[in-house]
Write a protein that binds this DNA or RNA. Structure first.
Lengths: 342, 342
DNA sequence: TTTATTTACGCAATCGTTCCCGGTTTTTTG
DNA sequence: CAAAAAACCGGGAACGATTGCGTAAATAAA
């Protein structure tokens, strides 16, 4: 099933010109006479000529495409990010190649090799939950390959980074719970390896301390896969509820963590917020429609995607390396029923 | 910021061979002696040689990438579809270029031009709500360009099509409402131009007729943007509720239609299902957590993406054109609280 | 009129890879 | 031992576009 395209050669042949003349005419070079230009332009319009981007890529040694690696597309936060990425990339004439790590380090490495072999011009990545070793990224980065981290960043690599103020998000949410009179606030956290987990836990601990509470490490449960598997969330909450002094509120620090928490409570007939309060990081569009309406920390995902892409394309197209930026976006706190003290 | 890659020429120079020999050695040609092969393989392994896909594309006149056009990535149904697409495409060595129409015909045409100019090997598309004119697709199709439609198909074009049994989905849902004792069942439908809208309304009408109800066209409201805008849903439901004989149940035929319906009821303090029952097409993962738990018709989105991609790649790689298939996948009905008769 | 300068175009190399033709050797066959 | 046949490898064109360089004709300057 071939699909023969019209080339510059066809135009040249039809008009009795050389390919160079046609090429120059199309690029409006001063070396070409107005009449010739007109002839070429009209004819290529007529036969609907489109330059072959592959040939251009080969010549210019750039593909005008950027790679994205995220854990999961079917996740509100990341699909909103991709939305933002796509909006900028499209405007600037780049296309976007998406790969999913499914929170697996192995797949992340594979994806990276795949994307690198597809000669992308740059990479946008939010690392997987499992990722501890950074060699796959470091080796690329050392060659001067443009990489921008978003959300889940890797501190040891000097590149652009776009994140949300996770510390503040968790701090505000925790403070809200404390001020509302909850005494035992547990944290349902993601993978320990992730930057966001550390930052969010940091905010949680600081809020407790600022309010004169002591931080109890047994009140923190980690889920390696960020709540992607219901079972890991179930195990974590089971553990929390079996403590001698079980929590009366939970702060969940990821989308799937939050929703699977809700699912757990529904399954076990635990009332929210009467039996236990809940607030979580989430970018779902309908947390207000849940039962009860969910208090959330929301991240400006779309903007995050946009900014990351702008930084990446800026770096790709820069002649000489600039300083790397670390953009920190504000989280938004939405207080609803699930964290109300009855 | 260039990023110099190692080429076959570098290997040839280093080993004192010609590029043709290296190329053949790498492809394990019988014309090359075992020793030479070994030398080449070892050296290219050492310097981490990767063939340049751009050069290959130019030579083979295929890019090994496929285009996707959907209305919105940040929509569970479509992100699940893309998930399925990506899983197959990745396995078969294709990458995927995604574009969003945002339910706009104009953007759909623009996206198509963009993708076509990026020399994709094939297209997966679910047309926008606004799309009535098919010339942009027809002209490509007539040139023999591989296109597969999924979900929202265009009947007049002879290609592979992958859909869900929308008629049955709507029929079952409507039947369930009737059998549960609801008397005035309204349909909140998407754009009239879409195949899925027609099919779903067909199922709705047939179910009413089979149960001896007469079909009343005033009970059907269309939303051109498929519920993407809250306002259009609000207007539609306002209209339904102001009827002399207002509905006691609604069947909503798209994801955003369903959730915006919920949002409307919540906003107006209308109780579901006491005041009005609701069942809708939705692929959200947490319709069971909504208040009330939502009865839905769920589509096998992931499988739909997989099958579409298999058919497309099959067509791309086929020597001679095969017959076009029309795959119809079964919908799943989940009955929950929102459609219970109190 | 002669020389210098534009003007307007073609030639050919280039990007990285494959592959069709050759062309040497070496080995096999009659 | 000569001829045929493998075995092994290099040269160069091709894919589609850009671009530096060369050059003929036309025009301008001397």
């Amino acid at each position: 099933m071939k699909f023969e395209a019209v080339t510059i050669k066809d135009i040249a042949k039809a008009l009795g010109l050389s390919t160079s003349t046609v090429s120059r005419a199309l690029r409006d070079s001063y070396e070409i006479s107005p009449e010739t230009k007109k002839r070429v332009l009209e004819y290529s319009e007529k036969i609907n000529y489109r330059p072959n981007p592959i040939a251009l890529s080969l010549k210019e040694k750039r593909s005008r495409s950027i790679g994205i690696i995220v854990c999961e597309i079917a996740n509100s936060f990341f699909s909103q990010i991709i939305n933002g990425i796509e909006s900028i990339a499209y405007d600037k004439g780049y296309n976007v190649i998406i790969a999913q790590s499914h929170e697996s380090y192995e797949r992340e490495v594979l994806n990276l090799q795949y994307l690198a072999s597809r000669s992308i011009d740059g990479l946008l990545i939010s690392v997987s939950s499992e990722t501890q070793e950074m060699d796959h990224l470091r080796s690329l980065h050392e060659k001067g390959f443009p990489i921008v981290f978003f959300d889940r960043v890797v501190d040891e690599l000097q590149t652009h980074k776009v994140i949300v103020d996770n510390f503040k998000g968790a701090y505000d949410a925790s403070l809200h719970l404390v001020k509302n009179g909850f005494r035992n606030i547990a944290a349902l956290a993601g993978s320990e390896y992730l930057s966001i987990t550390k930052e969010r836990l940091g905010g949680y601990v600081k809020a407790l301390e600022d309010m004169g509470r002591h931080y109890d490490s047994t009140m923190v449960q980690h889920c390696l896969h960020g709540g992607m598997l219901y079972e890991e969330v179930e195990t974590a909450i089971d553990h929390l509820l079996q403590l001698p002094n079980p929590p009366d509120a939970i702060i969940a620090s990821a989308d799937k963590l939050t929703t699977n928490c809700m699912r757990y409570f529904k399954k076990k007939n635990i009332r929210v917020p009467e039996d236990i309060a809940l607030i979580g990081f989430s970018n779902l569009d309908l947390t207000d429609l849940l039962s009860p309406a969910l208090s959330v920390v929301r991240q400006p995902a779309f903007e995050m995607g946009q900014i990351s892409t702008e930084l990446l394309i800026q770096q790709i197209e820069a002649k000489r390396p600039r300083d790397f930026e670390r953009r920190i976006l504000p989280p938004q706190l939405f207080i609803r029923e699930s964290s109300e003290k009855i």
